[in-house]
Design a protein around this nucleic acid. Structure first.
Lengths: 219, 219
DNA sequence: GACAAAACAGGACAACCGGTCTGTTTATAA
DNA sequence: TTATAAACAGACCGGTTGTCCTGTTTTGTC
């Protein structure tokens, strides 16, 4: 042989995961054949099988390493970095909507895409995906609790708020994907804020509004 | 041949759609093979091909006839029959959650399941699915408009309310499917109602609450 | 009853899929 | 250097998939 080969296990593994993550997002798990992935990644069958013995193992790695990381980057970190949970949620919705509108198409949420396809197919898939959902919700709920420590978010139930937030985003993204239009994300965010406005700075007036509402609710 | 054959085109078509609807819901489009469907429906390849020339044609029929009908039955009709839009939404969430808990497993929303898998795969699929989403949202928005004619739902934007409702349900069902637990549906409904309570009967006190909130909002 | 079209039966097939297998090359450590 | 395992190459295979094709039977019509 004339060609020199350089073993680069981490790089090859990374390239395969790159291609798989992208293809699963675009065509789904069943819609992505290992042959296509091998061709796209420039990887032979032997190498692929060496790093990922089965297609299921590859998908599990995509979920645990890539999808979880995507949720971390697009949701958990921005929310934690924001001044409040509500402000963080607002920022993420806006950022995602803007990004979708810029790129001109909507491929949907990587987590929800795989969750719908694989949750019923295999329990290992389902548990891995459920774990990512749980981390996502926990981060938002913890942020609400932090807000409460700072005197805000009096009557909000952290876990339920997190569940609703994740649900709205997931559902809005589902509609956006089907319509190929990010409008659903903006609509849902606006409606969410119109009934439960984000407390930018806790002015006396805004503060009173929250207290007023919860007081009336308990009556 | 000894066996007598009775031609029953409508019945055979119905049986195929029954099996396909169920299998697409349980295993998805790509996860359902025509061989399995033929065996489950007790139909030969010739008959199947006669009614549905391609797998895509079969899926399109499932979407347009069965999935649309499922949305009609579980969502549109109950909401229209309810006293108000909010009350209808509440009733559907409760009914679905109760049904899921009774049957012990969660297969997810038929529309969202197929939407995630097929929206990007084929534009004809996508448009058919988007049409069902649109009907769903329009029914809820129209109900809000009807409520407004009756003096309720003053400051609510019908279209955005419908978008949010569909999003919350879709996303909550996605989580419920992944967790195999209907709790997400109940959590999301409770959170939704805690911030925007359903006006059961419009008592003076409850009525004032809504007016109060929207009044403050505009300040 | 003749006849055409619809309804159905069932085999055939080429393409593809995921996984395995054997062999070769590269890195590592003694 | 040598042995040893990891990293990679590439052919191969059994099974499945969706579709097509050729017949046969039933149904409706004149």
């Amino acid at each position: 042989m004339r060609t020199k080969r350089t073993n680069d296990p981490e790089g090859m593994r990374r390239r395969v995961l790159d291609v798989a993550e992208d293809s699963f997002q675009a065509r789904g798990y069943h819609g992505s054949s290992l042959g296509d992935l091998m061709a796209a990644a420039g990887v032979t069958g032997g190498a692929l099988h060496h790093h990922f013995p089965t297609k299921k193992a590859l998908a599990l790695a995509v979920i645990e390493e890539r999808v979880a990381a995507a949720v971390q980057e697009t949701w958990i970190e921005p929310v934690l970095a924001a001044s409040t949970a509500r402000e963080g949620v607002r920022a993420v919705f806006m950022a995602v909507a803007a990004e979708l509108e810029q790129q001109g198409y909507v491929r949907g949420c990587p987590l929800n895409n795989l969750a719908h396809e694989l949750s019923l197919a295999d329990d290992e898939f389902r548990l891995a995906l459920a774990s990512v959902f749980a981390d996502w919700r926990r981060a938002i709920a913890d942020k609400i609790r932090a807000d409460q420590m700072s005197g805000g978010e009096g009557g909000t139930d952290p876990d339920r708020f997190a569940a609703l937030t994740v649900a709205v985003y997931s559902g809005a993204m589902s509609m956006a994907k089907t319509a190929q239009d990010a409008g659903a994300l903006r609509d849902c965010l606006r409606e969410l804020e119109s009934i439960q406005p984000s407390p930018g700075r806790l002015t006396g007036k805004r503060r009173r509004r929250v207290l007023l509402r919860s007081t009336i609710l308990e009556s």
